[in-house]
Amino acid sequence: MEPLKWKNAFKTSQSLLTWCEVWILDKKRTWISNIKTTFFALATIIFDITLLMEMQLLFNRRDYEAISIHLATLSLYVGFTIKIIMFMRKTEQLRNLIELFDWPGLDDIPAQFQQNKTRSIMSSNFISRFYFITVSFNITLYLNRPLYSSYFEYPIEFSYPLPYWGKYCLIALQVFCVYYTVLVGIAFDLLHASLARTATELLDILCKTITSFKPVNKDNPEAEELKFLTNCAIKHRHIKYLLVFMDFRLANSSEKVFTNILMWQYIVSIVSICNGTFQLTHTDSSVRLSMICNSLFVFNVLFEIAVFCWFAGLFTAKSVEVSTAYYMYDWLNSSQKVKKCLLILMHHSQQPIYMTAGTVIRLSMASFLQVVKAAYSYFTLMQSLYNKSI
């Protein structure tokens, strides 16, 4: 059986983005791809226009509760649409970034750590599949609201009058665009989380390789040790450049591809969590299925942003451990030249590596808590405005 490659960790997200024509594997597009892209783009634009039309009507009515409910819908789907546009401008850079994982040095790991590599790849795909299934289930419940509640005429509220055939066209448009924009949008975040997860595992294997190394050549151990440490330094530098825009001449790092997309996701998440919680607190408790939908919605948004914050934080923590691994290297019997080399490597690897959103927010569980706090502050504001309008 052929061993798995590191880029297989992105297979789930990559397959979905490829089918949706957001991520083209080949540089040459076929006529079928052009037709699909045109159809997806037109459908998404029309869908967003209907959302904006409904929001304008609600503002004219001054119905604050309905505005809050629709604002959660509007911010989510328009936000995902903007993320798709931002991502499609970076597809060439992302393609080059993924190709960097084919560098032979990343696969040059000791046999005892091959299992760690396989486990990392499988866990990344498992998390992606689990979240896709959870979100798909939630979307299905959400879109079937007209079936279990007579209050809803459409899956997403639309107050303008339509002819008989227009209603069915609008329902079909809403169902398709909700699945398309949401699944594609979360695929970006899961792809970023998989990149961080893979880079963390690469650093972990590097640390274990450094601490477990024993020179075999007894006649000239210094040359063997220097060669080993040089290869470790090159691999460490390559991993850093995969994830962080360390060199402004480098145009293929994930920081270059994802930083603005993640910043936009931060803003969308704050609005979505706030409005989703507002809906949950004002949902009639007798409509249990509606409460389940709102609860799952809040959970999915929290899980989405928590995943890439968690793995980004792990990557930062693991980046500091490389310096410790050099210190734990068996250097007592090494030559002065090897010890000086270790000191230099320890000094250069002491600086933590951060992944950012918008090059401003350092991704970690602390930044995740900032999102929750901001959403709660926004929620209390909405609640006070709602109480005054009663």
Rank of each mutant, 00 (worst) to 15 (best):
T359D: 07
K167Q: 14
P163R: 14
K90M: 13
E225D: 07
N260G: 07
R129I: 10
F132W: 09
K167N: 15
E92P: 12
Q279T: 08
L97F: 10
I156Y: 03
T380V: 11
V298E: 08
T73K: 01
V216G: 02
D107H: 14
K5R: 13
I49H: 10
V322Y: 02
I292M: 01
F258N: 10
A172S: 15
K256Q: 15
Y168L: 13
S124H: 03
A187I: 06
P215H: 00
I69R: 04
M328G: 08
Y77F: 02
K5P: 04
F188A: 03
P155A: 00
L76I: 05
I121R: 07
S269V: 03
K240P: 00
N231L: 00
T259F: 02
K83A: 10
K340I: 05
S136G: 12
I344V: 15
N217V: 09
H347Q: 11
G105S: 14
K214R: 07
L170S: 09
H236C: 00
E21W: 08
K235N: 00
M328H: 12
S319G: 11
F278S: 07
S367E: 03
S120F: 00
I98N: 03
L52C: 11
Q370I: 01
C169G: 09
T134L: 12
T200A: 04
T198G: 06
I82W: 15
V271M: 14
K214C: 00
T356I: 02
P146S: 06
C232G: 00
T277F: 01
I261W: 03
I261R: 05
K117M: 13
L106S: 06
L262D: 04
F39Y: 06
M291P: 05
T18V: 11
S75T: 15
K339G: 08
N275Q: 12
T50G: 10
L206F: 02
I210H: 01
T181E: 03
I210V: 05
T359Q: 09
T140Y: 01
N125W: 05
L100H: 05
S128E: 05
N8D: 13
A325E: 14
K318M: 13
K83R: 09
I261K: 07
Y179F: 03
R145P: 02
F47G: 04
K318C: 04
Y179P: 06
V257R: 02
F10C: 15
L289Y: 04
K7P: 09
A375Q: 08
L141K: 08
P146M: 05
E2L: 10
G276R: 05
V307I: 12
Y326T: 07
S15L: 10
T277S: 11
L381D: 09
Y329K: 12
V182R: 02
